[in-house]
C-alpha cells in the first residue's frame, strides 16, 4: 500500500437505526479487527451477489484484497458495517464503502453489499444513507460506480433520481450520482428516495 498522506482518524461512533420490520441495526465503521468477519461473510454470499459486487468475483478474499478492503481512514477510504444488534451474536450482515478518486477528490467510487438472506430489509438503505452523510462531510460531491447491466433494478432506481448511467467496460454501466449540496438536504431528497427504493439491497 502507498504511504497515506492523511493520518487515520479515530473511528466514528456506531449509530442505531430501526428497520421497517422493527429490527434494530447498528451501523459502525469497519475496523482492522474485522478481517476474519469479512472472510466469513464473503463465504456466505451467493454467487449472484458476489458477481454483482465484484463482477469477476474471487472464490475467497485473498490477503492482498483484504489488506485493501481493510485499509480505511474514514475520510478518503471509508467503510461502514451493519450489524443486527438484537440477534444472538450480533451478526454483521452488510457493508458499504467508498474510495475517494485520486483523479478528482470530489468523487468517490462506492459499493454496498448485504448478505442474501437479509436483502430486502432496508439494510442497504441505512448503510448508504450513513455513507452519503459521511461522504458529504468529507467534501465528496458525487458517487461513481461500475455496475453490471444485469443489476437492472438498481440501475433503474439510480436513473430515476437523475444518475448519469452510461456504457462503460463491456457488461458494465458507469454511473454517477450527485450528492445533495448540503448534508441537511439529504432527507426527503430524490437520492434519499432511491436509497429507500433500492432496499432490495442488491450489491452495487
Amino acid at each position: 500500500m502507498a504511504v497515506d498522506p492523511h493520518p487515520p482518524r479515530a473511528a466514528p461512533e456506531p449509530r442505531h437505526f430501526q428497520l421497517p420490520d422493527g429490527a434494530t441495526v447498528s451501523v459502525r465503521p469497519l475496523v482492522p479487527g474485522d478481517r476474519d468477519e469479512l472472510v466469513a461473510r464473503y463465504g456466505e454470499l451467493s454467487s449472484r451477489s458476489r458477481r454483482l459486487r465484484f463482477v469477476s468475483a474471487p472464490v475467497h478474499l485473498s490477503d492482498r484484497l483484504l489488506d485493501h478492503l481493510l485499509d480505511v481512514d474514514y475520510v478518503d477510504r471509508h467503510a461502514l458495517v451493519a450489524t443486527l444488534v438484537d440477534e444472538p451474536g450480533a451478526p454483521s450482515v452488510g457493508i458499504a464503502r467508498y474510495f475517494r478518486s485520486a483523479a478528482d477528490p470530489t468523487h468517490a467510487d462506492a459499493a454496498v453489499t448485504v448478505l442474501d438472506a437479509h436483502q430486502g430489509r432496508g439494510i442497504g438503505t441505512v448503510l448508504l444513507t450513513s455513507l452519503v452523510e459521511t461522504a458529504m462531510e468529507n467534501g465528496i460531491e458525487a458517487f461513481t460506480a461500475d455496475i453490471l447491466w444485469d443489476n437492472a433494478e438498481l440501475l433503474d432506481a439510480l436513473r430515476s433520481v437523475g444518475a448519469r448511467v452510461m456504457p462503460g467496460e463491456p457488461g458494465l454501466a458507469t454511473v454517477r450520482v450527485d450528492l445533495p449540496p448540503v448534508p441537511d438536504g439529504l432527507r426527503g431528497s430524490p437520492l434519499h428516495e432511491v436509497m429507500r427504493m433500492a432496499s432490495a439491497d442488491t450489491p452495487a
Binding site: F99, A111, E169, G171
Partner: peptide
C-alpha cells in the same frame, strides 16, 4: 502478476475492468 487498482485493472472497489 495479479490485477491491481494502480493499473486501473480493478476499480477501487475491486471490480475487474475487462476493457482495461
Amino acid at each position: 502478476s495479479d490485477f491491481t487498482i494502480e493499473s486501473d485493472e480493478l476499480t477501487p472497489t475491486l471490480k475487474v475492468r475487462r476493457g482495461i
